[in-house]
């Protein structure tokens, strides 16, 4: 396949253009800092985006709206369990992973046992998770343990640690999708659920694993974000609802399902941060910034659709 046909190319080109336009304004100063910030903040969007990508790959109608609530719940419960005590970082991670596992299983139980459409099931469940987070948080702002906070805001080899975690998870997902039977099953289920079932693919197991994977990823992102920003806030996941869907689609993953794209999610996550900082540095107000962001998202979707092979 030629480079030009790679679906992830466009999101990376857009990210590079936004980066270049921002740096051009400052005549090259601050380029390193901008790239560093983009990697830090982009990492959170990329981690939740990877999870959402797996769900969207399952086919039309599959989307997880419980990501923000799961992030908030995992961040809140993990910080509460750790209680700022040193040496509890791994225990906190364990709590976060358990939260992800629990919410994922609950979501899938609603989808599978009650046959609810995933959009409604995850939406209704997310209200319950949000309540749980409110109840356990009670307005307290517990600081993360010092070591964990240093890790979340620190860097290794000049790259933010959170970006390295995100990169590790991306490689894991890429290997799963491209090199494992499970990945083939997921793509097959997304392309035609009925055909996959008839071909002997355990489609319900694949769906269950996918809905658990997305909430586990959201839980990891919530845990890292709470440590990164010095505490869990009840609205900390809010912006990641639309963000997670946007990075998946801008990244070139087919919304119709059956096709995943890991590098594109990263390109789109960097782009979503860079476009905001570009508009900021050009002095656009909050309103103008939002309008332009929306128009750019639609523009990319249109550009992506015109290079599709006509049916």
């Amino acid at each position: 396949m030629k480079l030009i046909q790679k679906p992830w190319l466009w999101s990376w080109l857009a990210a590079a253009a936004a980066f270049a336009l921002t740096v051009a304004l400052t005549e090259g100063r601050g380029a390193g800092e901008l790239a560093y910030a983009a990697l830090s903040f982009g990492a959170f969007a990329a981690i939740v985006g990877l999870g959402q990508m797996l769900v969207i790959t399952l086919g039309p109608g599959n989307v997880d709206l419980s990501i923000p609530a799961t992030m908030t719940l995992s961040g809140t419960l993990a910080l509460k369990a750790m209680g700022s005590d040193p040496g509890t970082a791994w225990m906190g991670l364990g709590v976060a992973l358990l939260v992800g596992l629990g919410t994922g299983l609950a979501n899938f139980a609603l989808i599978f046992l009650l046959r609810l459409p995933p959009i409604i099931a995850t939406l209704a469940a997310s209200l319950v998770y949000q309540s749980l987070a409110i109840w356990s948080n009670r307005g307290l702002r517990i600081k993360p343990p010092a070591g964990l906070a240093d890790f979340a805001t620190g860097r290794s080899f000049g790259i933010p640690n959170v970006a390295l975690v995100g990169l590790g998870l991306s490689i894991l997902i890429w290997l799963l999708l491209e090199r494992s039977v499970w990945g083939r099953w997921l793509l097959a289920s997304g392309q035609n659920l009925r055909a996959a079932r008839l071909a002997g693919v355990p489609v319900e197991a694949v769906r269950a694993a996918t809905y658990v994977a997305v909430t586990v990823f959201a839980a990891i992102a919530g845990y890292l974000l709470a440590s990164f920003s010095g505490g869990a806030a009840l609205n900390m996941g809010a912006e990641y609802l639309l963000m997670s869907i946007a990075v998946v689609v801008i990244g070139g993953t087919s919304i119709a399902g059956g096709m995943s794209n890991v590098p594109g999610v990263w390109g789109a996550s960097l782009f979503m941060f860079l476009v905001v900082s570009m508009l900021n540095s050009y002095g656009a107000g909050a309103g103008v910034r939002m309008v332009l962001t929306g128009l750019i998202i639609i523009g990319i979707v249109i550009a992506a659709s015109t290079r599709r092979i006509p049916r």
Partner: peptide
């Protein structure tokens, strides 16, 4: 996705 983008436009 298009309506997702439009939500930014309307909000802005």
């Amino acid at each position: 996705v298009v309506t997702l983008g439009m939500s930014f436009v309307w909000g802005g």
